[in-house]
């Protein structure tokens, strides 16, 4: 059976991360599993974890008054779920639900934030990687906002 450290080292998000840093992160992680349709995180709940997806698919959702939950993005194996743990007030902005049976490593946010505070090199490395993630999602969101396929679009 692979250790959390092994699993993290195989995940694209952590590619090339030095072993001592992986060890520190792995110390905050546990394996978790979600069944199809199981709620993973709820909007406005404390963001005390983030998830390193190993398999399956997750819908990021927002509740709407008349149409119910709307999926605004899906993420799957090789990606990360959760950015709100990184900055105050540490609350989830959106909810997330497993579309398929999903396996992940749940990383304790307070544990990792503490280690990042203690070890600025680790903290900077994590921030650099999360900045890419946030940039990519921001870029995607901006494209979605353009409503490119709408009838007004050329």
């Amino acid at each position: 059976m692979k250790s959390i450290e092994d699993l993290l080292s195989e995940h694209p998000f952590f590619a090339g991360l030095p072993a001592p840093m992986l060890e520190l992160i792995a110390g905050c992680g546990v394996n978790v599993h979600f069944d199809e349709d199981e709620c993973i995180i709820s909007e406005n709940a404390p963001a005390d974890l983030f998830f390193v997806l190993r398999s399956g698919k997750v819908a990021i959702e927002v509740d709407t008054p008349r149409q119910g939950p709307q999926t605004i993005e899906t993420i799957s194996s090789g990606q990360l779920l959760g950015v709100s743990w990184l900055v105050p007030p540490y609350r989830w902005t959106f909810g997330a639900r497993a579309i398929d049976s999903t396996s992940a490593i749940a990383v304790d946010a307070a544990c990792l934030r503490g280690k990042c505070d203690d070890d600025p090199e680790l903290g900077y490395e994590m921030l650099k990687r999360f900045a890419v993630l946030v940039r990519d999602r921001l870029q995607s969101t901006r494209l979605q906002l353009l409503d490119l396929y709408g009838t007004h679009a050329s």
């Binding site: 149409q67 939950p69 709307q70 999926t71």
Partner: peptide, 14 residues
């Protein structure tokens, strides 16, 4: 697709 209701099991995103 750019957005979907929960009944959609496929991908959402650009």
């Amino acid at each position: 697709v750019d957005s979907a209701q929960r009944s959609w099991r496929g991908d959402v995103g650009v």
